[in-house]
């Protein structure tokens, strides 16, 4: 018995050790990014790479902020991701509630159509969307970036599941007291859905923040770039100036890092609930 326990515990220590090593391996590229960004341009390409810069400098940060409209891109990203998040929460919670709690003719067919749209790859709708928005002269606007995000049905699906799991009692009591459906939804159901809503919010925010292909297509001028698009152009303009690129990358990862530290739990919940990639 004690032999077994000893074996188990050495097994555990070994397992923990392996996990530490993997964890460290996984952050190395991030550390290298930070380290490179803090080195003077002349010391970045060295025969023997140094993890800790021999000379610390912020010149790369200064350069990238002077040469690229990084803050403008950051602002665009914030506007787009925040608007998309609020929009998704508003329309998805209404639709999710209606699907879960109200019976009306055609509900099940409509729900099947909504779920079926989850199978459509985004690239299929991008070309006609580009064309439509071009006709409406809405290309190269924030709205053009927000709109397609609002049509993603995963939030409706997820909130419907959540509302289905809520007990009926409260809503029924309110209905007996003469409250309308709308009041029941706003005053009773929505407050109860807070955990699901915050999980959906954080996931939607990060996905919208990281959108790449659609902004690449829909945005044509530098001042409208979102952060991902702007950053990708840095690689083209400053091909071998890795210090500048890494400084840009560090600045762009900071907001996500902060959001992650603040909302780690909600984010993980959001993924576990939706299980969708991007």
């Amino acid at each position: 018995m004690s032999a077994v326990r000893r074996k188990m515990s050495t097994g555990r220590v070994f397992g923990a050790l392996v996990m530490y090593i993997v964890g460290i391996l996984w952050v190395l590229p991030v550390l290298w990014m930070v380290s490179t960004s803090l080195k003077p341009e002349s010391m970045i390409m060295e025969a023997v790479p140094r993890w800790i810069p021999a000379v610390f400098t912020l010149s790369n940060y200064q350069e990238v902020l002077e040469r690229a409209a990084l803050f403008k891109w950051l602002l665009n990203s914030v506007i787009v991701a925040a608007t998309a998040t609020f929009g998704v929460l508003a329309i998805d919670s209404m639709a999710g509630y209606a699907f879960a709690r109200i019976s009306f003719p055609g509900r099940d067919v409509l729900f099947m159509i909504v779920v079926a749209t989850l199978m459509v790859p985004a690239q299929v709708t991008m070309i006609p969307l580009f064309f439509m928005l071009n006709e409406a002269t809405l290309l190269n606007t924030h709205l053009a970036l927000v709109l397609p995000r609002l049509g993603v049905a995963i939030g409706v699906f997820m909130l419907r599941q959540f509302f289905l799991s809520l007990p009926h009692d409260l809503e029924e009591a309110a209905a007996i007291d003469g409250a309308s459906r709308y009041r029941v939804f706003v005053q009773i159901a929505l407050p109860l859905a807070k955990p699901a809503l915050s999980a959906l919010a954080i996931v939607t925010f990060v996905w919208a923040w990281n959108d790449f292909m659609w902004p690449l297509i829909a945005i044509s001028t530098q001042d409208m770039y979102t952060l991902p698009i702007g950053l990708s152009t840095l690689a083209g303009y400053y091909g071998r100036e890795y210090g500048i690129q890494m400084a840009g990358a560090v600045i762009a990862s900071l907001p996500v890092f902060v959001v992650f530290l603040m909302f780690q739990r909600q984010f993980i919940q959001g993924i576990a609930l939706t299980g969708l990639k991007g």
Binding site: W26, V30, A235
Partner: peptide
């Protein structure tokens, strides 16, 4: 530590 890179935008992943 293992999860964090998922939050990075693809251009950061690419240039790093």
């Amino acid at each position: 530590m293992i999860f964090f890179p998922y939050l990075l935008t693809v251009s950061i992943v690419g240039i790093v």
